[in-house]
Write a protein that binds this DNA or RNA. Structure first.
Length: 430
RNA sequence: UCCUCGGUAGCUCAAUCGGCAGAGCGGGUGGCUGUUAACCACUAGGUUGCAGGUUCGAGUCCUGCCCGAGGAGCCA
């Protein structure tokens, strides 16, 4: 008998098949038994009828507990009363294991309890939908860059020093030296971009900041393209195209998951190119008018990002931030060196920053000066300065936070559900 | 790190002014021939986060600690 997956069940209508999975729920009514089986691809109702209650099938059924593993065989048939439109008329039920009492019921649970049981929570339909969207977003990103001739460059996770200096890093042992977990692949990708023209990296990133908000993870995944000879304008267009590509892909392939999540697709469908652009200078008075206490020179906090992003139906590109609040490698604007050629993409509906990037300093003298101003050890950056010594060119790139994208697309409040095992402040279990 | 809120059965919660520790779900037992988080009946299940204090009496009031959640800062 053929082993099939529930997502393919419609193609086997009328045929005898085998399903391997777990008990999601069961119901019985006298001489009828209903078994809701999940196999990782979907849910299927299996039914059993019997005049004699002592049948082997019924005995097996009655022993089943939630999440018991099993193999069921039977005939597929369409039935409007069954969830999903198809059900399995069971002929055989083979128990693989009777599960111990399962902690997660079909009723409501608190987030701390569910996080404590994250390894089991992943089996629920909502978590399935979110993580399938995540997988689709990642595939879309790879297809986007691969299709445009970008080379995938895996940058190191163990690094000898700070990439950006300011942020806190996780320290670890590297034999008799200290090493730090990467907080960005960007500096390395500036090197690979000079070797390959246009590149991207995609990997985990670690920030040892004591951030405790719905938008932060201690360990998260970031995609960072870097393009030689590109300007701020070039990578803004690249960022727009990337976001639109991801949206179209998810709307085309994962619409059912968005429905499961009760995510209204209209705001995502409404996103159009070109995205609104706003300079920092233009944004500050708007923010003050809307009640923010921001002064020129101050960085945007979550409330500022929310105010701006709610003004438009597409993500907003905010550019030309004050030099003083941005990273050392940011290229100053030619007309005003107090601001830099950087851009933050603020997602609509109040989701905030999903992309941050800009043009990098290509002048060796200015870069050396910035390292000094930021009190960074020049020796550690000799290789980085070399990039400005041997055929330096203007170049630009950005970083996109995967979990923030997924959380925006899925319309969920907290980023912690967008990765299988979130690392949070004060939570590293399971 | 700071501010706010919370911790009672396996889970989600209730317990009036300080006066006998409760319900639903889940578990167990039985019933029901189309259930949809099925339903009905019965049943077991408690160191009220920890340590002190006030009181005739503390889940409830006070002090300290632990753990968690929401927000801030920082960032993607």
């Amino acid at each position: 008998m053929e082993w099939v997956y529930i997502e393919d069940i419609a193609a086997h209508d009328g045929r005898e098949v085998e399903i391997r999975g777990w008990v999601y729920n069961k119901r019985s009514s006298g001489k009828v038994r209903f078994l809701l089986v999940r196999d990782g691809t979907g849910l299927l109702q299996a039914t059993a009828f019997s005049a004699e209650k002592d049948s082997l099938l019924f005995q097996q059924f009655d022993r089943l507990t939630q999440e018991s593993s099993l193999i069921v065989r039977g005939t597929v048939r369409a039935d409007k009363r069954a969830p999903g439109g198809f059900e399995l008329a069971m002929s055989e039920l083979e128990i693989v294991q009777i599960a111990a009492e399962y902690p997660i019921t079909l009723k409501e649970h608190s987030t701390p309890f569910l996080m404590e049981h994250r390894h089991l929570w992943l089996r629920s339909s909502r978590q399935h939908a979110i993580l399938r969207v995540r997988a689709e977003v990642i595939k879309a990103i790879r297809d986007f860059f691969d299709g445009r001739g970008f080379r995938l460059m895996d940058t190191p996770i163990l690094t000898p020093s700070a990439c950006e200096g300011t942020t806190t890093l996780f320290e670890t042992e590297y034999f008799d030296q200290k090493a730090y977990l990467s907080q960005s692949g960007q500096l390395y990708n500036e090197a690979t971009a000079m070797a390959f023209g246009k590149v991207y990296c995609f990997g985990p990133t670690f920030r040892a900041e004591k951030s405790k908000t719905r938008r932060h993870l201690i360990e998260f995944w970031m995609c960072e393209p870097e393009v030689a000879f590109a300007t701020l304008q070039d990578i803004m267009v690249l960022g727009e195209d990337l976001i639109l590509f991801i949206m179209e892909r998810v709307l085309a392939r994962r619409r059912a998951d968005l429905e499961t999540l009760e995510r209204d697709p209209k705001p995502l469908e409404a996103i159009k190119k070109p995205f609104p652009r706003l300079t920092y200078d233009e944004a500050v008075p708007i923010l003050r008018e809307k009640g923010s206490a921001i002064e020129w020179g101050g960085d945007f906090g979550a409330p500022e990002e929310t105010i701006i992003s709610e003004l438009y139906s597409s993500p907003v590109c905010v550019t030309h931030f004050p030099t003083a609040i941005k990273a050392f490698y940011m290229q100053p604007a030619p007309e005003n060196p107090d601001v830099v050629l950087g851009v933050d993409f603020l997602a609509s509906e109040g989701y905030g920053e999903v992309i941050g990037g800009g043009q990098r300093i290509h002048d060796p003298v200015l870069l050396g000066k910035r390292l000094e101003e930021h009190k960074l050890p020049r020796e550690a950056y000799e290789w980085y300065l070399d990039l400005r010594k041997y055929g330096s060119v203007p170049h630009a790139g950005f970083g996109m936070g995967i979990e923030r994208m997924v959380s925006w697309i899925c319309g969920i409040k907290h980023i912690r559900e967008t990765i299988p095992f979130p690392r949070l402040l004060y939570r590293i279990y399971p």
